[in-house]
């Protein structure tokens, strides 16, 4: 995923789940797989991802 594509995914996730990723989460390994993204969302909004 290129960094511009990553940004678009992050923006869409923030919008959809109504969360804001803190800076510590804004790095490559948090967005390198669907599982990693899901656990980041869960941490910000428990129960958001089934």
């Amino acid at each position: 995923m290129t960094s511009h594509a990553s940004v678009n995914v992050m923006l869409a996730l923030e919008d959809h789940f109504d969360v804001e990723f803190p800076d510590r989460m804004l790095k490559r390994d948090v967005f390198e797989s669907i599982d990693a993204i899901a656990s980041a969302i869960m941490e910000l909004q428990p129960g958001a991802v089934a």
Partner: peptide, 12 residues
Amino acid sequence: QTNASLLLIAKD
């Protein structure tokens, strides 16, 4: 161009 993109999401 890269920074412009990062600034859309980076906060601090």
